[in-house]
Simulated scan of single mutants.
Amino acid sequence: MAKLTMTSSRWDELTALLEDEQRLRSEYPKVAEYLDMAASLGGTGDDQADAQFDLRFVHYMTGGSAVSPNPYWDIVEPFVVEHGDRRVVNGGRAEGSPRLAFAQMLLQATYAYAIPSPETIDWIARFCAGFPIVELGAGRGYWAAQLARSVLTIDAYDSEPPDKTSNASFPEVAGQTDVWYPVQDLSDFAARTRPANYVLFLCWPPGWGDTMSSEALAAFENAGGERLVYIGEPRGGKTGNDAFFEALSDRWTLDSTDPHFVSWWTDADLAQGWVRI
């Protein structure tokens, strides 16, 4: 694992923060929570690797966009391994570790459920072929921010923009960025004019029978939409509902799958590009 490098001034900042427990808990409560729990949770068995992960976690979670435009990726990248035909974050252990599972929960709430590796961002750019993108269910707009940095045009929408209203999946927490990219509400999306001359982007649309994914796809079809990027689990998983997958099977064809997509070892998500039949 490549060691994290940082400036001496940044190292001094982190040292001062970690030595002031009251300040750490006040300014970065989730980082303090992680450090409290990490000591009692089993790691990968490689103490040096676990310590390096902890340092990355603290550095990027307290530095925000000032230290990295994609801190989520910078935190997990050293723990990505090839597992069969997939790339997963598990630290080299098929079963991961309790410590990594706890970090996963915090990172998904801080950034996004799916991990935006640079390769996946490039794959989306190729699939979109110059078309603008509309993301529904954008959460904190973390994926939208990464796509916009790749000179893609994207508008992001959510039923509960975290900087405007309470969002259970992405709660307001001290020391964390509410949104990484402007996220509009669904009333703004409803005001868009037709036709749907954009690529629809659905990243981890809710599952468990929630109709968001099928309703979004139906509205896109009715507006003449022809290209869809879907990041989530297959049918029967944690994302999408049956009607969504039935619509894909009946009226769409799978055009591309990102072979370099990175997933948490606990999830079965993938990145797919669909085109209308």
Rank of each mutant, 00 (worst) to 15 (best):
C203I: 13
P171C: 05
F201Y: 15
C203P: 01
I124A: 13
I133E: 09
V183F: 09
P205G: 11
W180G: 01
R149G: 15
S159I: 08
A156Y: 05
G141D: 06
E160N: 12
W143F: 13
G175E: 09
G130K: 14
S159M: 10
P162A: 08
K164D: 09
P206I: 06
A148N: 14
Y181W: 13
Q146E: 15
L152M: 15
N197V: 00
Q176S: 05
R194L: 03
L147F: 09
D163L: 03
I124M: 13
S150I: 00
C203M: 07
L202R: 11
N197K: 11
S169L: 08
P195E: 02
F131S: 13
V199E: 07
S169V: 00
K164F: 03
G175F: 06
K164R: 15
S150A: 15
R192K: 14
V134N: 02
N197R: 12
A125Q: 13
E172L: 04
A191G: 03
K164Y: 01
A168I: 06
G207L: 11
P161Q: 05
D163K: 04
F201H: 14
T193H: 11
F170V: 00
E160W: 07
D185C: 03
T177L: 10
Y157W: 03
P132T: 06
R126L: 06
A129G: 11
N167P: 09
W143K: 07
S166W: 05
D163I: 00
G139C: 01
P161M: 04
V183P: 08
L202N: 12
Q184H: 15
P132R: 12
F189S: 08
A196G: 08
R192D: 08
V183A: 08
F131M: 12
W143P: 02
Q146C: 12
V199I: 05
D155Q: 12
C128D: 09
A168N: 03
R126Q: 14
P205C: 09
I154T: 06
A190R: 15
E160L: 10
A174I: 03
N197G: 06
I133K: 11
G139M: 01
A125F: 01
L202G: 10
Q146G: 07
G139A: 03
F131D: 14
V179T: 15
L202T: 11
G207Y: 09
